[in-house]
Simulated scan of single mutants.
Amino acid sequence: MKKTTRWILIISSIAIVTSVLWNTYVFFQRFKEEERAKMTIWAEALGEFIQTTDLDRDMGNVTLAVMKNNTSTPIIYVGNEGEVTSNNLPENRVDDSVYIQRKIQQFTTENPPIDVTFRNTKYGTLYYGNSDVLNNLKYYPMALLLVIFLFAAVVYFFYRTFKVADQNKLWAGMAKETAHQIGTPLSSLLGWSELLKAENVNPEITAEIEKDIDRLLVITERFSKIGSVPALEKSDVVAETYKTFQYLELRSSKLVEFDFKSPEIPIYCDINRQLYSWTIENLIKNAIDAMKGKGRLTIEVVLDKKFVKINVIDIGKGIQKNDFHQIFEPGYTTKKRGWGLGLSLVKRIIEDYHNGRVRVFASTVGKGTKMQIVLKTTP
């Protein structure tokens, strides 16, 4: 039903626009014909005036009145002897021969010239252009289309905004519910961890379990923050990046060679640690997937004046250039399994919450990709 209604509205809109444009065109042509008829009468009046000036002064006065009635259409009369008379042109240009010749060429393209004759005798040629009313009418369809386009753009913008807002509410609700659901088994795991300690289980085992429990706590906190503005605090980006890097290195395939490069000094930025860690984790996991679990993965932290750049580099399958922006769109994925939300979350976290920038810095199909995050440093 909604699809049928949408098509009815689209077809009706096209029909209305087509009708308005067609009627405008018909009115334009009719007005142009009436203007030519008026100019034809004016040319006849001019020929009669030239012939009767010495014969019938009263008739000449009537003809002169007809000629003076034209106050809108620009005209140029060129006599057989080359004399030039103009009307409705700028007074300061009527003696400019170059300007007059250019106008004659313009008028000839707009309307066919009219011979000024009387009783089969030709006295000259009349050139005339479109009046201001006709010129304005000529641009009316374009103005109408522009208004319609702007109106459609505004409608689409509001429709898109409401749709995105609904989607955001849905994702925020799902994320918070996920955090709530994780919380229950997580509490049990904390209890089991304490029982294992009491039973004197190998401390190395319980230590690794506690790391995973801490990780689950971080993930729960991440999901709970979706839909709300996160608090930012001054943190060492080098340390926070390395912490996530090290955690994933220990839990990834040994076929992936990890490499971390950074200055030996701390670099401070205002970040939310949980959400920032999420972005690094997403980029690292994407890089590992691009290499199909085998290859070299490098993270570089580079200080560049007032900014810090975090580069995640892989030697995977690469990204085509026309997909550089598209990969950040929600739902876009090249994986057989995946919802295409990872990079869209990365973009939102970095650009909306941290006022930074994330982009595909460089990529070559079959050779690898360099993803880059840029954040402003904090003194």
Rank of each mutant, 00 (worst) to 15 (best):
K309W: 08
L134Y: 08
G47M: 03
G60M: 09
K163D: 06
Q106N: 08
F31K: 13
F361E: 05
V302M: 00
R337Y: 08
S262C: 09
L250P: 07
A45G: 14
G183Q: 13
D352H: 03
P263K: 10
D304E: 12
V312C: 04
G338H: 02
L216K: 12
S187I: 13
L126G: 07
N168M: 05
A362H: 14
E33Y: 11
K376F: 05
K347I: 11
S13I: 12
L375F: 03
Y268E: 09
Y353L: 02
I114V: 14
I310Q: 04
I319R: 01
F31W: 12
D54I: 14
K335W: 07
P266G: 04
L196E: 02
Q101D: 09
Y99P: 08
V155T: 09
G368Y: 02
S228A: 15
F27G: 10
V237D: 03
G366K: 05
L137D: 07
S13K: 02
I226E: 01
I11T: 13
L150F: 06
A198Y: 13
K347R: 02
V78Q: 14
M142R: 10
E249F: 02
A239Y: 02
M174T: 11
I213D: 03
V155F: 15
Y276A: 06
T178W: 15
E194M: 14
D214T: 07
T161Y: 12
